[in-house]
Design a protein around this nucleic acid. Structure first.
Lengths: 208, 208
DNA sequence: GTCTATATTCGGATAGAC
DNA sequence: GTCTATCCGAATATAGAC
Protein backbone atom coordinates (compact mmCIF):
# COMPACT_ATOMS: atom_id res chain seq x y z
CA UNK A 1 0.00 0.00 0.00
CA UNK A 2 1.07 3.50 -0.85
CA UNK A 3 0.91 4.93 2.66
CA UNK A 4 2.98 2.06 4.02
CA UNK A 5 5.62 2.86 1.42
CA UNK A 6 5.49 6.43 2.59
CA UNK A 7 5.86 5.48 6.24
CA UNK A 8 8.93 3.41 5.47
CA UNK A 9 10.53 6.10 3.34
CA UNK A 10 10.18 8.70 6.09
CA UNK A 11 10.30 6.49 9.18
CA UNK A 12 13.18 8.27 10.90
CA UNK A 13 11.29 11.58 10.95
CA UNK A 14 8.04 10.13 12.29
CA UNK A 15 7.49 10.12 16.04
CA UNK A 16 4.75 7.50 16.07
CA UNK A 17 6.56 4.20 15.80
CA UNK A 18 3.61 1.86 15.46
CA UNK A 19 3.15 1.42 11.73
CA UNK A 20 -0.57 0.83 11.99
CA UNK A 21 -1.25 4.20 13.65
CA UNK A 22 1.13 6.19 11.50
CA UNK A 23 -0.07 4.75 8.21
CA UNK A 24 -3.66 5.37 9.13
CA UNK A 25 -2.97 9.02 9.97
CA UNK A 26 -0.77 9.58 6.97
CA UNK A 27 -3.64 8.51 4.77
CA UNK A 28 -6.01 10.93 6.47
CA UNK A 29 -3.47 13.74 6.26
CA UNK A 30 -2.58 13.32 2.61
CA UNK A 31 -6.15 12.91 1.44
CA UNK A 32 -7.15 16.05 3.32
CA UNK A 33 -4.11 17.89 1.97
CA UNK A 34 -5.15 17.03 -1.58
CA UNK A 35 -8.72 18.17 -1.02
CA UNK A 36 -7.77 21.47 0.54
CA UNK A 37 -4.81 22.41 -1.62
CA UNK A 38 -6.62 21.59 -4.84
CA UNK A 39 -8.93 24.46 -3.94
CA UNK A 40 -6.69 27.04 -2.32
CA UNK A 41 -3.11 25.84 -2.71
CA UNK A 42 -0.75 24.14 -0.31
CA UNK A 43 0.68 27.25 1.24
CA UNK A 44 -2.68 28.80 1.91
CA UNK A 45 -3.79 25.64 3.66
CA UNK A 46 -3.17 26.00 7.39
CA UNK A 47 -2.57 23.14 9.78
CA UNK A 48 -5.78 24.16 11.47
CA UNK A 49 -7.61 23.52 8.20
CA UNK A 50 -5.96 20.13 8.26
CA UNK A 51 -7.17 19.51 11.83
CA UNK A 52 -10.73 20.29 10.83
CA UNK A 53 -10.62 18.13 7.72
CA UNK A 54 -8.93 15.10 9.32
CA UNK A 55 -10.46 15.27 12.79
CA UNK A 56 -6.93 15.11 14.22
CA UNK A 57 -5.48 17.62 16.66
CA UNK A 58 -2.31 19.65 16.19
CA UNK A 59 -0.48 17.14 18.35
CA UNK A 60 -1.91 14.27 16.37
CA UNK A 61 -0.66 15.79 13.15
CA UNK A 62 2.83 16.38 14.46
CA UNK A 63 3.05 12.82 15.71
CA UNK A 64 3.39 11.54 12.17
CA UNK A 65 4.91 14.43 10.27
CA UNK A 66 7.89 16.52 11.30
CA UNK A 67 6.68 19.69 9.63
CA UNK A 68 4.06 20.89 7.18
CA UNK A 69 6.60 21.03 4.36
CA UNK A 70 7.37 17.33 4.61
CA UNK A 71 3.92 16.57 3.22
CA UNK A 72 4.99 17.97 -0.14
CA UNK A 73 8.22 15.99 -0.05
CA UNK A 74 6.22 12.81 0.59
CA UNK A 75 4.12 13.44 -2.48
CA UNK A 76 7.21 13.97 -4.58
CA UNK A 77 8.70 10.71 -3.32
CA UNK A 78 5.62 8.70 -4.18
CA UNK A 79 5.27 10.21 -7.66
CA UNK A 80 8.96 9.62 -8.33
CA UNK A 81 8.82 6.02 -7.15
CA UNK A 82 5.78 5.18 -9.23
CA UNK A 83 6.93 6.94 -12.38
CA UNK A 84 10.34 5.31 -12.32
CA UNK A 85 8.72 1.96 -11.79
CA UNK A 86 6.47 2.37 -14.82
CA UNK A 87 9.33 3.38 -17.08
CA UNK A 88 11.84 0.83 -15.89
CA UNK A 89 9.43 -2.04 -16.34
CA UNK A 90 8.27 -0.79 -19.76
CA UNK A 91 11.72 -0.47 -21.29
CA UNK A 92 12.51 -4.06 -20.41
CA UNK A 93 10.30 -4.82 -23.38
CA UNK A 94 12.45 -5.43 -26.44
CA UNK A 95 9.92 -4.14 -28.92
CA UNK A 96 10.15 -0.32 -28.86
CA UNK A 97 6.56 0.08 -30.03
CA UNK A 98 5.24 -2.05 -27.21
CA UNK A 99 7.46 -0.27 -24.71
CA UNK A 100 6.29 3.13 -25.96
CA UNK A 101 2.62 2.25 -25.82
CA UNK A 102 3.14 0.63 -22.46
CA UNK A 103 4.60 3.82 -20.99
CA UNK A 104 1.90 6.06 -22.41
CA UNK A 105 -0.98 3.84 -21.36
CA UNK A 106 0.40 3.15 -17.93
CA UNK A 107 1.08 6.82 -17.30
CA UNK A 108 -2.39 7.85 -18.45
CA UNK A 109 -4.07 5.20 -16.30
CA UNK A 110 -1.87 5.74 -13.26
CA UNK A 111 -2.16 9.52 -13.32
CA UNK A 112 -5.91 9.03 -13.49
CA UNK A 113 -6.01 6.78 -10.43
CA UNK A 114 -3.47 8.86 -8.52
CA UNK A 115 -4.63 12.17 -9.99
CA UNK A 116 -4.39 14.11 -6.70
CA UNK A 117 -0.75 13.09 -6.21
CA UNK A 118 0.41 14.09 -9.67
CA UNK A 119 -1.69 17.24 -9.70
CA UNK A 120 -0.33 18.29 -6.34
CA UNK A 121 3.29 17.78 -7.31
CA UNK A 122 2.85 19.77 -10.52
CA UNK A 123 1.30 22.77 -8.84
CA UNK A 124 3.23 22.71 -5.58
CA UNK A 125 6.73 21.97 -6.80
CA UNK A 126 7.67 25.48 -5.74
CA UNK A 127 6.87 24.58 -2.14
CA UNK A 128 9.81 22.19 -2.21
CA UNK A 129 13.43 22.94 -1.37
CA UNK A 130 15.64 23.69 -4.38
CA UNK A 131 17.11 20.20 -4.14
CA UNK A 132 13.70 18.54 -4.15
CA UNK A 133 12.56 20.80 -6.97
CA UNK A 134 15.45 19.51 -9.04
CA UNK A 135 14.43 15.99 -8.16
CA UNK A 136 10.93 16.72 -9.33
CA UNK A 137 12.14 18.09 -12.67
CA UNK A 138 14.29 15.01 -13.15
CA UNK A 139 11.14 12.87 -13.16
CA UNK A 140 9.84 14.83 -16.12
CA UNK A 141 13.17 14.68 -17.94
CA UNK A 142 13.29 10.94 -17.42
CA UNK A 143 9.91 10.52 -19.10
CA UNK A 144 10.80 12.74 -22.06
CA UNK A 145 14.14 11.05 -22.61
CA UNK A 146 12.67 7.56 -22.43
CA UNK A 147 9.92 8.41 -24.89
CA UNK A 148 12.35 10.08 -27.25
CA UNK A 149 14.71 7.10 -27.28
CA UNK A 150 11.86 4.75 -28.05
CA UNK A 151 10.51 6.97 -30.82
CA UNK A 152 13.93 7.00 -32.45
CA UNK A 153 14.03 3.21 -32.37
CA UNK A 154 10.50 2.90 -33.68
CA UNK A 155 11.16 5.26 -36.57
CA UNK A 156 14.70 4.08 -37.27
CA UNK A 157 16.01 7.66 -37.33
CA UNK A 158 14.22 8.75 -40.46
CA UNK A 159 13.76 12.26 -39.03
CA UNK A 160 16.12 14.61 -37.28
CA UNK A 161 16.80 14.57 -33.56
CA UNK A 162 14.60 17.56 -32.78
CA UNK A 163 11.55 15.96 -34.28
CA UNK A 164 11.58 13.05 -31.84
CA UNK A 165 12.08 15.38 -28.95
CA UNK A 166 9.09 17.48 -29.86
CA UNK A 167 6.86 14.43 -30.24
CA UNK A 168 7.95 13.18 -26.84
CA UNK A 169 7.21 16.63 -25.46
CA UNK A 170 3.78 16.58 -27.05
CA UNK A 171 2.97 13.17 -25.61
CA UNK A 172 3.94 14.23 -22.11
CA UNK A 173 1.97 17.45 -22.50
CA UNK A 174 -1.09 15.40 -23.40
CA UNK A 175 -0.65 13.13 -20.40
CA UNK A 176 -0.32 16.11 -18.10
CA UNK A 177 -3.23 17.93 -19.74
CA UNK A 178 -5.50 15.13 -18.60
CA UNK A 179 -4.60 15.09 -14.92
CA UNK A 180 -4.02 18.81 -14.59
CA UNK A 181 -7.47 19.85 -15.81
CA UNK A 182 -9.97 17.52 -14.20
CA UNK A 183 -12.68 20.14 -14.69
CA UNK A 184 -12.45 19.48 -18.44
CA UNK A 185 -12.77 15.72 -18.22
CA UNK A 186 -15.12 15.22 -15.31
CA UNK A 187 -18.09 15.14 -17.65
CA UNK A 188 -16.79 11.91 -19.09
CA UNK A 189 -16.98 12.69 -22.80
CA UNK A 190 -13.62 11.02 -23.19
CA UNK A 191 -12.97 7.67 -21.59
CA UNK A 192 -9.48 7.18 -20.30
CA UNK A 193 -8.89 4.37 -22.79
CA UNK A 194 -9.89 6.58 -25.70
CA UNK A 195 -7.66 9.34 -24.44
CA UNK A 196 -4.62 7.07 -24.20
CA UNK A 197 -5.23 5.66 -27.67
CA UNK A 198 -5.66 9.11 -29.18
CA UNK A 199 -2.40 10.23 -27.63
CA UNK A 200 -0.51 7.29 -29.10
CA UNK A 201 -2.20 7.88 -32.43
CA UNK A 202 -1.13 11.54 -32.41
CA UNK A 203 2.47 10.48 -31.83
CA UNK A 204 2.38 7.99 -34.68
CA UNK A 205 0.81 10.40 -37.12
CA UNK A 206 3.55 12.88 -36.27
CA UNK A 207 6.24 10.32 -37.10
CA UNK A 208 5.00 9.98 -40.63
CA UNK B 1 0.99 50.41 -22.58
CA UNK B 2 -0.02 47.46 -20.52
CA UNK B 3 0.23 49.14 -17.11
CA UNK B 4 -1.87 52.05 -18.27
CA UNK B 5 -4.55 49.57 -19.32
CA UNK B 6 -4.31 48.06 -15.87
CA UNK B 7 -4.63 51.41 -14.15
CA UNK B 8 -7.76 52.25 -16.10
CA UNK B 9 -9.33 48.85 -15.47
CA UNK B 10 -8.86 49.16 -11.71
CA UNK B 11 -8.98 52.92 -11.27
CA UNK B 12 -11.76 53.01 -8.70
CA UNK B 13 -9.79 50.84 -6.27
CA UNK B 14 -6.54 52.82 -6.56
CA UNK B 15 -5.92 55.60 -4.06
CA UNK B 16 -3.26 57.35 -6.07
CA UNK B 17 -5.14 59.38 -8.63
CA UNK B 18 -2.24 60.68 -10.70
CA UNK B 19 -1.90 58.22 -13.54
CA UNK B 20 1.81 58.82 -13.95
CA UNK B 21 2.62 57.79 -10.36
CA UNK B 22 0.24 54.85 -10.23
CA UNK B 23 1.33 53.38 -13.56
CA UNK B 24 4.95 53.64 -12.58
CA UNK B 25 4.36 51.84 -9.29
CA UNK B 26 2.12 49.20 -10.81
CA UNK B 27 4.91 48.30 -13.18
CA UNK B 28 7.36 47.94 -10.32
CA UNK B 29 4.90 45.90 -8.28
CA UNK B 30 3.91 43.46 -11.00
CA UNK B 31 7.44 42.89 -12.21
CA UNK B 32 8.55 42.18 -8.66
CA UNK B 33 5.54 39.94 -8.08
CA UNK B 34 6.47 37.87 -11.13
CA UNK B 35 10.10 37.53 -10.04
CA UNK B 36 9.26 36.48 -6.50
CA UNK B 37 6.27 34.24 -7.13
CA UNK B 38 7.98 32.39 -9.95
CA UNK B 39 10.37 31.15 -7.29
CA UNK B 40 8.23 30.64 -4.21
CA UNK B 41 4.62 31.15 -5.27
CA UNK B 42 2.27 34.08 -4.86
CA UNK B 43 0.95 33.15 -1.47
CA UNK B 44 4.34 32.60 0.06
CA UNK B 45 5.44 36.01 -1.20
CA UNK B 46 4.94 38.54 1.59
CA UNK B 47 4.34 42.23 1.09
CA UNK B 48 7.66 42.76 2.84
CA UNK B 49 9.34 40.78 0.08
CA UNK B 50 7.59 43.12 -2.30
CA UNK B 51 8.88 46.17 -0.41
CA UNK B 52 12.45 44.90 -0.63
CA UNK B 53 12.19 44.06 -4.32
CA UNK B 54 10.46 47.28 -5.42
CA UNK B 55 12.07 49.76 -3.04
CA UNK B 56 8.59 50.91 -2.07
CA UNK B 57 7.26 51.02 1.48
CA UNK B 58 4.15 49.31 2.79
CA UNK B 59 2.30 52.58 2.46
CA UNK B 60 3.59 53.04 -1.05
CA UNK B 61 2.29 49.64 -2.04
CA UNK B 62 -1.15 50.22 -0.58
CA UNK B 63 -1.43 53.53 -2.39
CA UNK B 64 -1.88 51.77 -5.71
CA UNK B 65 -3.36 48.41 -4.79
CA UNK B 66 -6.27 47.80 -2.47
CA UNK B 67 -5.02 44.41 -1.27
CA UNK B 68 -2.44 41.80 -2.09
CA UNK B 69 -5.03 39.63 -3.83
CA UNK B 70 -5.90 42.29 -6.36
CA UNK B 71 -2.49 41.76 -7.97
CA UNK B 72 -3.61 38.32 -9.15
CA UNK B 73 -6.88 39.73 -10.48
CA UNK B 74 -4.92 42.31 -12.45
CA UNK B 75 -2.88 39.62 -14.11
CA UNK B 76 -6.00 37.70 -15.04
CA UNK B 77 -7.54 40.82 -16.57
CA UNK B 78 -4.51 41.51 -18.74
CA UNK B 79 -4.20 37.92 -19.94
CA UNK B 80 -7.91 37.83 -20.75
CA UNK B 81 -7.80 41.11 -22.64
CA UNK B 82 -4.81 40.09 -24.73
CA UNK B 83 -6.00 36.57 -25.49
CA UNK B 84 -9.43 37.72 -26.59
CA UNK B 85 -7.82 40.34 -28.76
CA UNK B 86 -5.63 37.79 -30.54
CA UNK B 87 -8.51 35.46 -31.23
CA UNK B 88 -11.04 38.05 -32.27
CA UNK B 89 -8.66 39.61 -34.76
CA UNK B 90 -7.57 36.24 -36.15
CA UNK B 91 -11.02 34.89 -36.86
CA UNK B 92 -11.85 37.95 -38.94
CA UNK B 93 -9.70 36.23 -41.53
CA UNK B 94 -11.88 34.37 -43.99
CA UNK B 95 -9.40 31.63 -44.73
CA UNK B 96 -9.58 29.13 -41.84
CA UNK B 97 -6.01 27.97 -42.38
CA UNK B 98 -4.67 31.50 -42.13
CA UNK B 99 -6.82 32.18 -39.09
CA UNK B 100 -5.64 28.97 -37.40
CA UNK B 101 -1.98 29.64 -38.04
CA UNK B 102 -2.46 33.23 -37.01
CA UNK B 103 -3.85 32.22 -33.62
CA UNK B 104 -1.15 29.65 -32.95
CA UNK B 105 1.73 31.89 -33.97
CA UNK B 106 0.39 34.91 -32.17
CA UNK B 107 -0.23 32.96 -28.99
CA UNK B 108 3.23 31.39 -29.07
CA UNK B 109 4.90 34.75 -29.66
CA UNK B 110 2.77 36.67 -27.18
CA UNK B 111 3.11 34.11 -24.40
CA UNK B 112 6.86 34.29 -24.99
CA UNK B 113 6.98 38.06 -24.64
CA UNK B 114 4.52 38.13 -21.75
CA UNK B 115 5.67 34.82 -20.29
CA UNK B 116 5.55 36.00 -16.66
CA UNK B 117 1.90 37.04 -16.99
CA UNK B 118 0.68 33.81 -18.52
CA UNK B 119 2.84 31.68 -16.26
CA UNK B 120 1.58 33.48 -13.19
CA UNK B 121 -2.08 33.12 -14.12
CA UNK B 122 -1.69 29.40 -14.77
CA UNK B 123 -0.04 28.65 -11.47
CA UNK B 124 -1.89 31.14 -9.29
CA UNK B 125 -5.43 30.72 -10.54
CA UNK B 126 -6.28 29.18 -7.18
CA UNK B 127 -5.44 32.48 -5.48
CA UNK B 128 -8.41 34.02 -7.26
CA UNK B 129 -12.00 34.15 -6.05
CA UNK B 130 -14.27 31.40 -7.43
CA UNK B 131 -15.76 33.90 -9.83
CA UNK B 132 -12.41 35.02 -11.17
CA UNK B 133 -11.30 31.39 -11.40
CA UNK B 134 -14.25 30.73 -13.68
CA UNK B 135 -13.27 33.73 -15.73
CA UNK B 136 -9.79 32.34 -16.05
CA UNK B 137 -11.04 28.96 -17.24
CA UNK B 138 -13.24 30.65 -19.80
CA UNK B 139 -10.13 32.07 -21.48
CA UNK B 140 -8.88 28.54 -22.03
CA UNK B 141 -12.22 27.30 -23.29
CA UNK B 142 -12.39 30.21 -25.73
CA UNK B 143 -9.05 29.20 -27.23
CA UNK B 144 -9.96 25.51 -27.52
CA UNK B 145 -13.33 26.26 -29.10
CA UNK B 146 -11.91 28.70 -31.60
CA UNK B 147 -9.18 26.29 -32.66
CA UNK B 148 -11.64 23.42 -32.95
CA UNK B 149 -14.02 25.41 -35.13
CA UNK B 150 -11.21 26.38 -37.47
CA UNK B 151 -9.89 22.82 -37.69
CA UNK B 152 -13.34 21.61 -38.68
CA UNK B 153 -13.49 24.19 -41.43
CA UNK B 154 -9.98 23.39 -42.62
CA UNK B 155 -10.65 19.67 -42.77
CA UNK B 156 -14.21 19.97 -44.05
CA UNK B 157 -15.50 17.52 -41.41
CA UNK B 158 -13.74 14.45 -42.72
CA UNK B 159 -13.23 13.19 -39.16
CA UNK B 160 -15.54 12.96 -36.19
CA UNK B 161 -16.15 15.77 -33.71
CA UNK B 162 -13.90 14.35 -31.00
CA UNK B 163 -10.90 14.29 -33.25
CA UNK B 164 -10.92 18.03 -33.80
CA UNK B 165 -11.36 18.63 -30.14
CA UNK B 166 -8.35 16.53 -29.24
CA UNK B 167 -6.15 18.26 -31.80
CA UNK B 168 -7.19 21.65 -30.45
CA UNK B 169 -6.39 20.38 -26.97
CA UNK B 170 -2.98 19.21 -28.12
CA UNK B 171 -2.20 22.54 -29.75
CA UNK B 172 -3.07 24.44 -26.60
CA UNK B 173 -1.08 21.99 -24.49
CA UNK B 174 1.94 22.67 -26.70
CA UNK B 175 1.53 26.43 -26.40
CA UNK B 176 1.28 26.14 -22.63
CA UNK B 177 4.17 23.70 -22.41
CA UNK B 178 6.42 26.40 -23.81
CA UNK B 179 5.59 29.18 -21.38
CA UNK B 180 5.09 26.96 -18.35
CA UNK B 181 8.51 25.32 -18.46
CA UNK B 182 11.02 28.06 -19.20
CA UNK B 183 13.73 25.94 -17.61
CA UNK B 184 13.43 23.59 -20.60
CA UNK B 185 13.70 26.24 -23.27
CA UNK B 186 16.12 28.75 -21.78
CA UNK B 187 19.03 27.02 -23.44
CA UNK B 188 17.69 28.11 -26.80
CA UNK B 189 17.79 24.83 -28.69
CA UNK B 190 14.40 25.69 -30.13
CA UNK B 191 13.74 29.11 -31.54
CA UNK B 192 10.27 30.42 -30.97
CA UNK B 193 9.62 30.42 -34.72
CA UNK B 194 10.59 26.77 -35.01
CA UNK B 195 8.41 25.89 -32.05
CA UNK B 196 5.35 27.60 -33.53
CA UNK B 197 5.88 25.94 -36.90
CA UNK B 198 6.32 22.51 -35.34
CA UNK B 199 3.11 22.95 -33.40
CA UNK B 200 1.15 23.83 -36.53
CA UNK B 201 2.79 20.92 -38.35
CA UNK B 202 1.76 18.51 -35.58
CA UNK B 203 -1.83 19.67 -35.90
CA UNK B 204 -1.82 19.21 -39.68
CA UNK B 205 -0.28 15.76 -39.52
CA UNK B 206 -2.98 14.76 -37.06
CA UNK B 207 -5.70 15.88 -39.47
CA UNK B 208 -4.52 13.48 -42.12
C1' DG C 1 2.06 60.66 -2.57
C1' DT C 2 5.08 58.21 0.32
C1' DC C 3 7.09 57.09 4.54
C1' DT C 4 7.49 54.87 9.55
C1' DA C 5 5.34 52.76 13.24
C1' DT C 6 1.89 50.00 14.94
C1' DA C 7 -2.51 47.22 15.46
C1' DT C 8 -4.25 42.82 14.97
C1' DT C 9 -4.79 38.37 13.31
C1' DC C 10 -3.13 34.00 12.21
C1' DG C 11 0.50 30.90 11.09
C1' DG C 12 3.67 26.78 12.53
C1' DA C 13 5.47 24.50 16.20
C1' DT C 14 6.01 22.68 21.11
C1' DA C 15 5.16 21.20 26.10
C1' DG C 16 2.97 18.60 29.09
C1' DA C 17 -1.49 16.40 30.66
C1' DC C 18 -4.05 12.24 29.90
C1' DG D 1 -0.40 7.98 20.88
C1' DT D 2 -3.31 11.83 21.09
C1' DC D 3 -5.15 15.86 23.11
C1' DT D 4 -5.31 20.97 24.90
C1' DA D 5 -3.08 25.08 25.79
C1' DT D 6 0.33 28.15 24.69
C1' DC D 7 4.52 30.40 22.62
C1' DC D 8 6.45 33.14 19.26
C1' DG D 9 7.20 34.98 14.89
C1' DA D 10 5.26 36.72 10.69
C1' DA D 11 1.57 38.14 7.92
C1' DT D 12 -1.74 41.84 6.11
C1' DA D 13 -3.44 46.08 6.71
C1' DT D 14 -3.90 50.84 8.67
C1' DA D 15 -2.96 55.47 10.99
C1' DG D 16 -0.78 59.42 11.04
C1' DA D 17 3.66 62.11 10.27
C1' DC D 18 6.14 64.40 6.56
Amino acid sequence: MIYTLLFRLHQEAIKTKKEKFAVNNLEKLLKATFRISAKIGFHEMSLRDLCRETGLSMGGIYSCISSKDILAVMVKDVVKFITKDIIEKAILNEDPERAFQNIVRNLVYTTEILQPWFYFLYFETRSLSPKDQEDSKRIEILIIDSLRELLIRIDDRKNNENHYHIIATMVLAMIQERYLKPWKYKKGKYSIEAYASKTIQLAYSALR
